[in-house]
Design a protein around this nucleic acid. Sequence first.
DNA 1: TACATATAATTGATATATCAATTATATTTG
DNA 2: CAAATATAATTGATATATCAATTATATGTA
Lengths: 146, 146
Amino acid sequence: MNLSLPSETIFHAIESTIKDYRKFAQKNISEKIKDMTIDQGMVLLFLNEHPELTQKEIAELVFKDNASMTRMINTMVEKKHLKRSINSKDRRRYIIEITDKGKDVLKTLPPIIHQNRNSSLKGITKNELNQLEIILNKIRTNCAKT
Amino acid sequence: MNLSLPSETIFHAIESTIKDYRKFAQKNISEKIKDMTIDQGMVLLFLNEHPELTQKEIAELVFKDNASMTRMINTMVEKKHLKRSINSKDRRRYIIEITDKGKDVLKTLPPIIHQNRNSSLKGITKNELNQLEIILNKIRTNCAKT
DNA sequence: TACATATAATTGATATATCAATTATATTTG
DNA sequence: CAAATATAATTGATATATCAATTATATGTA
């Protein structure tokens, strides 16, 4: 069986790219904000735009499962970026609020993220980005077909 | 600050794609092989092609850090897929050998991986794959620049 | 040679990933 | 309405991710 090495596949390139970007982005965030991971930042951004999101919905948006999201939000509540309170309209859910400390992060974070995206996409044309997205979507569709 | 939602960025698409592929691939592996993750399978493949690899080198190839690799190999040794022995030429390293049980996995695994790659890349042209790789490399280069 | 430095691997601490099972509450349906 | 089913969140168990500190061994250099 002459299987080419995993390192030669496109999946290697995809995975390596996202990991490099994550490291790059995390480094730039950590320089400015203490105790804030990319994913925690994403949770803040999503909640800021859509305060009514449930944990389950946030989890889907940031590609985590419910269990991970429960624990992530626990940590963020301990760190005082978020506050959980009972949702009397549906007592299975929580209302998740961004605290003042969380709002401070939201002042600092967006420009860093912008900067991260801009620098990591420098020299790449709109057309290339479209291409990229189209191809990635093809792969995703293929993987979804049971 | 009108930051577009994270879900609208290309990084969302990249991350989502690799996660979908991983789930898809893991599912197909699990159907045929017990107790074998994609990454453990990759370790077997790499070691099979390059038996002299150190843990550190394997770690780089599969994008893990040394600590994770130590623990991954611990697990694989416990599960009897691998065997560690002392490398008398450099006593800081180990010689890592694939056991018979590991070799059995290597008989079953490659066709599954081939199949996974083929089905997930169906309908995508060579040219598109090249494009994809070029663009991803640009991003990686940008992220590497300090 | 002796000491400083480098390297490979491990360990500890904490966070996250994942699956399965469980709890509490809502909703649907007979 | 009552029972069955569905949903949101949690918990437990185990693996992996990540960083910093540590151990053991090699290598470079005065």
